[in-house]
Design a protein around this nucleic acid. Structure first.
Lengths: 208, 208
DNA sequence: GAATCACTAGAACGAACGCTCTATCCAGAG
DNA sequence: CTCTGGATAGAGCGTTCGTTCTAGTGATTC
């Protein structure tokens, strides 16, 4: 309009393969994921997202014509994969189930403290805010939980635990991790996470 | 202004002792608590509260001059006591710790299902949304968690568990209940709650 | 009867919300 | 070259947000 500048769009000069669109879309999703994690769904505005992602409103609605809901669902799926990576890393760190689970809580505690007690579970806040009211987000959340549960269940199975027990224990392991992270976050103290890790290890030990 | 009606204010005719103010204030707090539980802090507007509580905006700001934050903090304290009552009832239901804890999860599951999976923990959503950003709410949340933890710890102590163990177990019991309720809510299924109840009972059994 | 006080009542404010819209840019195809 | 279409750009829509403000109510006190 007023500024016919020769701005080079946003192609990063390097990366000759992927076009600029991939970069912008990814930047929007990642920014949204982080903001939803810290401020929740209702507390995060689309204009704030576009500002912090250094993308314009037009770009946001270009990539996510479904608006805020579609964008949030994509961010939830991003958080899903992010947490899955951490979970696989923690659980795979040791052959001993008890040791692996405490490594998991240790990792969560470190990350939480490093962020100033801000970055808890990437999807919990949004999940609670939208439960029963935004189906497209609800579904992304349900898929994330199912994904994580499968990861834990497979790991328990590989550790020699009976299939039925593994399925049930996966539920409780995840529930306790979720609750412990929430508790650590509001208390600004990593103790609840570490304590729950030890108790989970003790519980698992009764199954061998 | 336009309507000089002879509306009897809101004194309920009966109850000669307490004045009308108590009724209105309580009504506002209870409505806020329920709305925060279901929609979270950012998703709940003061005008919606005044509408559903059948109180005017003037009344809301009369009783809570600190605005939305002060009102939310009062609602959190209300939810604190509400959950404490349920906790005491569940834990006191049996002399056997394992049985008492599964009764607790049973009660939570019933309530959750009866509300159409809407009414989870009365304070979690608001707690997560405001952590690190609204000190007055953060403090009310911290007090609630401490209150519940003390209730569980005292109960474990009375059940003959060592003081140090009781303190730590109280953490994990609460964390797991919180996580299980969240999980049950998003899955629209009471299984996670019941399963976690059994696992908690099993964990407690290893301490006798 | 006048004054006081706790409470009710809702119009109005500036700011922010999600979203729509038109306009423009630019790389590649013909 | 022109043409096309994905991507960028942001002004502006109607609505709602939290809060402030003035006015008015009915019961109580001197």
């Amino acid at each position: 309009m007023k500024t016919p500048v020769t701005k080079p769009a946003n192609k990063p000069a390097g990366a000759p393969e992927k076009t600029a669109t991939v970069g912008t879309r990814e930047r929007i999703v990642r920014t949204t994921s982080r903001l939803l994690q810290r401020q929740g769904y209702e507390g995060t505005g689309i204009k704030q997202i576009s500002r912090e992602a250094e993308a314009t409103l037009g770009s946001v609605y270009h990539f996510f014509p479904g608006g805020k809901q579609e964008l949030a669902a994509a961010a939830i799926r991003h958080g899903d994969e992010e947490f899955a990576v951490l979970l696989r890393a923690g659980l795979g760190s040791s052959a001993d189930p008890g040791e692996a689970i405490t490594t998991c809580t240790r990792m969560l505690a470190d990350e939480l403290r490093a962020s100033g007690w801000q970055d808890g579970c990437p999807i919990t806040t949004t999940a609670l805010e939208t439960v029963g009211r935004v189906p497209v987000i609800e579904q992304a959340v349900a898929e994330a939980f199912a994904n994580w549960r499968a990861i834990v269940a497979d790991w328990l199975l590989a550790a020699g635990i009976d299939a039925e027990d593994a399925r049930e224990l996966a539920d409780t392991v995840l529930n306790t991790l979720e609750g412990a992270e929430l508790s650590a976050q509001v208390a600004r103290d990593e103790e609840p996470l570490l304590v729950s890790g030890r108790h989970l290890a003790r519980l698992l030990a009764t199954y061998r």
